[in-house]
Amino acid sequence: MNQLLSAVINGVATGVPLFLVASGFTLIYGVMGVLNFAHGAFFMFGAYCFAVMLAGQALSLPLFLLYALGAAAVIAVLGVLSERLVFARLYNSGHMINLLAAYALMLMLIGLSILIFGTTTYHVPRPSPFRGAVHIGTVPVPAYNLFVIAAGLVVAAGLWFLLNKSGLGMKIRAVAHDRTTARALGVRAPLVGMGVFALGCALAGLAGALDSPMISVAQGMDATFAIQFFVVVIIGGLGSTWGALFASLLVGLMESLLVYYAPAWSQYGMYILVVFVLLLRPQGLFVRGPAITHS
């Protein structure tokens, strides 16, 4: 029972940064039709920026959050630059060209990160209130994991509110459904697209910042999530934020539980899920009907 609780909390804590990255990715795809292959690189950049800002100090919680949002803002700007310089010219060029452009962007960002941040590993300490473990019964749980879960829920709620209850959210949904008609109603789709790109990248950057105390901030970090968040959007359905949340938690939990109960399978759990979803419901668990059409 103890181990189960520990596994569940670990799984959810792993799933949250994954959700943040995947939600940004799926939002960008849903609205712009762009598969942002470079998304993992934005995650890495966010972690690097955050690590440099902290310079190895353990901060108080408010400062920690402030810097994390700061890192996210920097990545948002990086995202807008990428969108303007790379993707804006390629919207009508089809998926293959966009994929290649995103891949090229990823390589460029990786090279840039080596130039700017070097090859050493950056160490990001947890914020001071969350350095140790809390005990739930007799089970030790890192306090920071609980914080990340809470932060993830706040972001998820904020995202839901933005998309479903705000004027901007209405425009985003309209452009995601039918870009041409939205434009014909006067919606400035290119601006909405830029905003969505900024938001999506900011989410990835925030995920990098929040995740950084838990993993090494170093070269190769972008690859950490690359496979996982692609798996998440396949399972949850491209374009669905709820799908991203559900699938991220599912993937996190599955891996965590397998490590406890069937360690030999722990690396394959993800792929087994993908096989099932593709066989039974190839559009993803949360997407209605065939994939979203764009015009």
Partner: peptide, 17 residues
């Protein structure tokens, strides 16, 4: 643990206890 991923939370919980 696999070489290409860095999330060891589950394994570490096992070791810690």
């Amino acid at each position: 643990v696999p070489m290409d991923q860095q999330n060891y939370g589950s394994q570490i919980s096992v070791l810690a206890t």
